[in-house]
Nucleic acid binder design. Structure first.
Length: 271
DNA sequence: CTTTACGCCTGACGGC
DNA sequence: TGCCGTCAGGCGTAAA
């Protein structure tokens, strides 16, 4: 499901289609999403116009005339803009209906996603207080990681997937960035040199930026707003490549589990 | 304090 | 064909 590049792909897809539109109805059909706004909060959006669609970490922020919606895609969430509203299908949990019949529709089979309402810019609220910096921020460099990792024994893969450390890195891109950096995913975060963290910081940015260019990664069900898959799967070096030849040394790629997540790496190239 | 394990949900797939 | 276990782009919480 959506990591930062997939959420950014969705944002770029819907932003031009919904900006400037006015809300005529808000329909929430599911009562057990991970997070959800109240009916009163959602009703307050009627009559408001979409000013812009932004992103923070793996969250989409829809900025209306007065208030904000924050959407999270969980593992399986997708958003589509329909030119005309159609009857909802299974797992179509949330609609933002606009003037002239257009509709932003949230679809999420596993219901790990959510919809939250904020009176003002949510980036200044407690909700994002514990959220780490964007990976493209200047402050996120090798020294940043090195200092935060000092004394920590947890696997570096879990360290970079911790959203309080840096926002937006999930399982796929953690695997990829560690491979590019030659770092074993189970290595304790506190036992990595500044020099290696410099490479890791650079490679996190590289892999995320490249994935955004490719429209994200489609493993099973990610689709952008246009219904097209993301093509970064073609560029994956280790994720999902168990037993296949390492692109660098030719040995078979190993799979294991770290932090209850599938972890792919090369035993020879990553130390 | 840090680190790990589990649950939340549904669907797809492989083995028997 | 069906049943059962396992797995899946995440994250909050409880427990160790």
């Amino acid at each position: 499901m959506p990591e930062l590049p997939e959420v950014e792909t969705i944002r770029r897809g819907i932003q031009p289609l919904v900006t400037g539109r006015s809300v005529t109805a808000v329909l929430l059909r599911c009562r057990n999403l991970r997070w959800q706004a109240t009916d009163e909060e959602l009703a307050s959006l009627v009559g408001q116009q979409v000013k812009d669609v932004e992103r923070r970490a793996k969250y989409l922020l829809i900025h209306f005339t007065r208030n904000w919606l924050v959407l999270h895609m969980g593992m399986t969430g997708t958003l589509r803009v329909l030119a005309e509203s159609r009857p909802p299908g299974r797992h179509d949990h949330f609609d933002l209906v606009f003037d002239r019949g257009a509709c932003l529709r949230f679809h999420d089979p596993r219901k790990f996603g959510g919809v939250l309402w904020f009176r003002d810019d949510p980036r200044n609220t407690g909700f994002f207080a514990a959220c780490g910096p964007e990976p493209f921020a200047d402050e996120v460099d090798g020294a940043y990681f090195y200092h935060l990792a000092k004394g920590k024994s947890l696997a570096v893969k879990n360290f970079i997937m911790d959203q309080k450390i840096v926002a937006g890195v999930g399982n796929i891109y953690a695997n990829e960035a560690l491979f590019l950096s030659g770092i074993h995913p189970a290595r304790p975060a506190g036992r990595i040199s500044l020099k290696r963290f410099n490479h890791l910081a650079e490679n996190i940015r590289l892999v995320l930026a490249r994935a955004i260019e490719a429209g994200g990664t489609t493993i099973r069900d990610f689709v952008g707003n246009d219904g097209q898959p993301g093509y970064f799967a073609l560029e994956l070096q280790v994720y999902g490549r168990e037993g296949q030849a390492c692109v660098r040394c030719g040995r078979p790629v190993t799979v294991t589990r770290i932090g209850q997540r599938s972890t792919f790496f090369c035993r020879k190239c990553q130390t």
